Simulated scan of single mutants.
Amino acid sequence: MNSEIINKTEEYVKNKLQGEGTGHDWWHIHRVRNTALRLGEIEKADLFIVELAALLHDIADHKFHDGDEEIGPATAWNWLENLGVDEAVIRKVCIIIRDVSFKGAGVETTMESIEGKVVQDADRLDALGAIGIARAFAYGGHKVRELYNPEIKPESHTTFEAYKKSTGPTLNHFYEKLFLLKDRMNTMAGKKEAEKRHQFMKGFIDQFLSEWDGNFEL
């Protein structure tokens, strides 16, 4: 029964997000699911809840629905309810979906369950490293944001509303979110991998800034 629910949910999500161009596509879901399951095994989490939450965590992202924070959990609830999933499981999955996202430098996003912690770590790992860099610029292009503007300084958002309204250049996003993630990981394995990806990302930004003014040594 659980495997049938997973298979139907995978197909549902794949059909909905396949070909999406902002970095929140099916392959993002695929990577997060795989990472979350690996972390979940280490942490002895309920892998059914982990897999459902990972598959559905971006099913209706607030970024693409006028900032609506409830549409994601509501969409997931309706889908799982129609599949006959136990209400206690649905509730746990939807809490994870509600709380998984980064909401600003000054906003806490604590996960209570171990299932939530591994899904959150998996989602954050996909925002780091080489893939994280690619996703950041893909989303910035989608939002028609400048790559970088040294006249616009990064902000430390103290509320989710302020974070959602941010329109700064893509490079600012590294300082406003991505460089903060390694210190917000929940699991030991997640922290270790986040540190590696963080260092890679820092090297990229250092190189980007060194090239910015068009100067180089022969």
Results as ranks from 00 to 15, higher is better:
Arg33Glu: 08
Leu52Ser: 09
Met188Val: 15
Glu10Asp: 13
Arg33Trp: 03
His57Asn: 10
Glu41Cys: 02
Glu217Cys: 04
Phe160Leu: 03
Ala189Ile: 11
Ser210Trp: 11
Thr110Val: 13
Ala88Gly: 00
Val89Gly: 05
Ile59Arg: 11
His65Thr: 07
Val13Tyr: 07
His24Glu: 05
Glu217Ala: 09
Ile95Ser: 01
Ala122Glu: 03
Glu10Ser: 15
Gly23Glu: 08
Gly40Arg: 05
Arg33Tyr: 07
Ser113Thr: 15
Gly203Cys: 09
Cys94Trp: 06
Gly129Cys: 09
Leu178Val: 03
Val13Cys: 12
Asp86Trp: 03
Leu171Gly: 08
Lys44Ser: 11
Phe102Tyr: 15
Gly21Trp: 02
Glu217Asp: 13
Tyr139Glu: 02
Glu10Phe: 14
Asn78Gln: 12
Glu20Met: 02
Arg98Cys: 01
Glu176Ser: 04
Ile114Ser: 04
Gly19His: 11
Ser101Asn: 12
Glu195Ile: 14
Arg135Gln: 00
Glu10Ala: 11
His173Arg: 10
Ala138Gln: 05
Ser156Thr: 06
Thr109Ala: 01
Ser156Phe: 09
Gly72Ser: 15
Arg38Thr: 04
Asn186Phe: 14
Thr35Cys: 07
Glu108Ser: 15
Phe204Asp: 01
Gly141Cys: 09
Thr109Leu: 00
Asp213Glu: 14
His62Leu: 06
Ile71Trp: 10
Trp77Glu: 13
Gln18Glu: 15
Arg197Gly: 02
Arg184Gln: 12
Glu115Arg: 06
Leu47Asp: 06
Ala105Met: 01
Ile71Ser: 10
Lys202Asn: 09
Ser210Leu: 12
His57Val: 05
Thr22His: 01
Ile205Gln: 02
Pro150Thr: 08
Glu4His: 07
Ile29Arg: 07
Leu80Asp: 05
Lys92Ile: 08
Glu176Thr: 04
Asn2Asp: 08
Phe137Ser: 03
His62Gly: 00
Ser113Gly: 04
Glu108Pro: 07
His65Arg: 14
Met188Gly: 01
Phe179Leu: 02
Glu112Lys: 15
Met111Asp: 00
Leu171Arg: 13
Ile133Arg: 12
Tyr175Gln: 09
Glu108Met: 12
Glu20His: 11
Lys196Tyr: 06
Asn15Leu: 14
Leu128Pro: 02
Ala134Arg: 11
Val89Trp: 09
Lys8Glu: 14
Ala122Pro: 00
Ala54Gly: 08
Val118Trp: 01
Gly203Thr: 12
